[in-house]
Design a protein around this nucleic acid. Structure first.
Lengths: 209, 209, 209, 209
DNA sequence: TATGAATGAGACTTCATTCAT
DNA sequence: AATGAATGAAGTCTCATTCAT
């Protein structure tokens, strides 16, 4: 009777998040009506508002959940010893991984929202900086190990990579007719020229089939 | 009755576009109310709707105007003979130029809108492809001239550059704390490694002041 | 075409105020739904909100209109030279006049609202102080003229009178079974004892039929 | 199963009433949410609704509790032999006593509610009549004893006093800037002129310190 | 007795757009 | 060409109350 069942609570929260994500994907943050989200979550508005105080809170939760997943993905993909190889491997599944995260459309809206909503702004700023730092640290360590070229500024280059990937996702999702294969090739070329450890500068051409 | 005065018409349209741009900048597409745009344009809603059938039309017009300006900018910046030098020079005024176009927030919203609105989608697709083609053609010609490295696929690399620049704008505007100097350095490094003509691969370091 | 027709505007505003007053009377401030007020005013919500930015604004307008009318009534009733006589005459039409103003129920809600809503609080405070001052000035002048007893503090007594009248209205309207005749008699007695000019202290008994 | 423990029940009811009173004071009847009252009472909504069938019931209980306390206060204050003296003494602690009862704001809401809600109406009517009768009886007896002036109609004057006191409370609480000292003086003056027993009509000035 | 999850009607308000002049 | 009055659907959120355990 009395015991607050945390499992049930978590389940409800997940139901709501799933419904919200689906709606946001289809209609965008402002196009998705709370009433529809509630219906899709199989709950009454009152109940949904018991778990999330406002639509904004829901949006924030969605973003934060995506951040968590993205971090995991990044750590898994680039965690190995041979960072250059890892980056190259990551290119192989670039689009596959991009499809897993939030839709590019939402990314666009999130960035727009960040311009005007301080709470979203903080979340986004933290996210971007964490990503840049994570990747930057990784590149720096790789340089120390000699597993990538020591010349580029690791943090500057990390920023470039993070933003580039984000842009590709958005552009692809917006249906701008990105040629995925072509882009992967270009990325590979760029990585080789910028990061390949000296001894692999020539051999590395073998990476590009 | 009264003779149609095309000059007057064009003036009215510009008034509306200016007002709309200002509002969109401040509040975003969906945050900007038509009533406010009308007031700022110094016109009644009825009159504004005489020139634009809907808010969507207005948005489209704004986007198309921005495309025109961006094209001009790109042609001007990268038009010269020495494409590698031009790219490097462009880096010097990268942020300045980015501040001129539509706000990053709007870019984000446009991309999101493109996912759901076919007419916006078409405009955006055309824009992106035109930019990629323009820059790709430019790079290809430069390769032919020997003014940049002949190895990279000009169109793939063009896509990368276009999207990267777009992403930087969005991220910067969203207040993610981009270090503009650091990014410019990284871009320069990347350009040198990827595009610098062979004979300048070493000397090129002088480009980076 | 163009000319903003102020007459029409004023008419619309009056329509809304009338509808609102009627609804507030029936249901109270918070019990009256804007949608009903709109319907009763024969206007769409959007239009009503064109004239009043919020329900609160509407409430304020209603209160302020009532204040204006009450002031007129007070000036008319007590304006004459023989203030004591005027007060006595006012007693004859006390209930009739009270029925003209806002309903007692609304008075109650206004006072409650004033406790929590600063804007209403200001309106109410100004109103009460103006009434007290008006009546106080009047009594003071009457004392100087010798047309009422010089002893009582005119402003303290004015406060008493103002509040007493307000209380009677509220209590009567709340259906507490006030005996109107009896109360008028008591008021007359009180006025005679407290305000009758010395020479009339005895003769005045003739006022009480 | 479990034996009903009436003491425990009464305790629970008191908890609820205390919480409700506190909330009503702060937010008014309609501004106070049941959920907040429940939280403040340390009980679940389900449990609270076990003791009170509705918010209205709770309001009624609060009013009735206040009536009981007010009666006690009145009896205590005015119970003595020398009624005129007692009334004068009551003036000394008028505001202090007023602060003890329900807040003026609530009085306002109660009266408004009485206009529309028959059950509240009955409670309020009974209360007012009981107060008037109590005070009226008291004055009548005092007249018989010669401890106040025999002329005024005891019930009419009682009505006046009861309503006046109620109005002062409401007006004071609504922040209308009542000058408490000034009002007490005016009340004293009024009482002396209207109720002081003949022999004290002159001497009575000593009552006003 | 006691919990807290769950409901759902309904409140206020906004805003793109159309209409009458 | 130009106005601004007018519409009304739809949006977010609240809250008294009930239900299942």
């Amino acid at each position: 009777m009395r015991p607050v069942d945390p499992a049930r609570q978590a389940e409800r929260v997940q139901q709501i998040l799933n419904a919200a994500l689906e709606c946001f994907r289809e209609k965008g943050f402002h196009g998705a009506a709370m009433s529809v989200i509630c219906r899709k979550a199989g709950m009454s508005p009152g109940h949904v508002y018991h778990y999330f105080r406002s639509k904004e809170d829901l949006i924030e939760a969605i973003i934060e959940e995506d951040i968590r997943r993205s971090e995991e993905r990044m750590t898994t993909l680039l965690g190995g010893e041979d960072t250059y190889q890892a980056l190259n491997d990551a290119m192989s599944c670039l689009w596959e991984k991009l499809d897993e995260g939030l839709k590019g459309a939402l990314e666009g809206e999130i960035m727009a929202e960040a311009t005007r909503n301080p709470r979203i702004a903080k979340i986004v700023r933290d996210r971007e900086q964490r990503f840049r730092t994570m990747l930057g640290d990784l590149l720096k360590a790789a340089q120390a190990r000699g597993s990538i070229d020591p010349e580029p500024d690791p943090y500057g280059f990390a920023t470039l990579l993070v933003e580039l990937v984000s842009a590709l996702k958005i552009a692809d999702d917006a249906g701008t007719g990105i040629d995925r294969e072509q882009v992967v090739e270009a990325m590979r070329f760029m990585l080789r020229r910028c990061l390949a450890p000296r001894e692999r500068q020539v051999a590395s051409r073998a990476d590009t089939p």
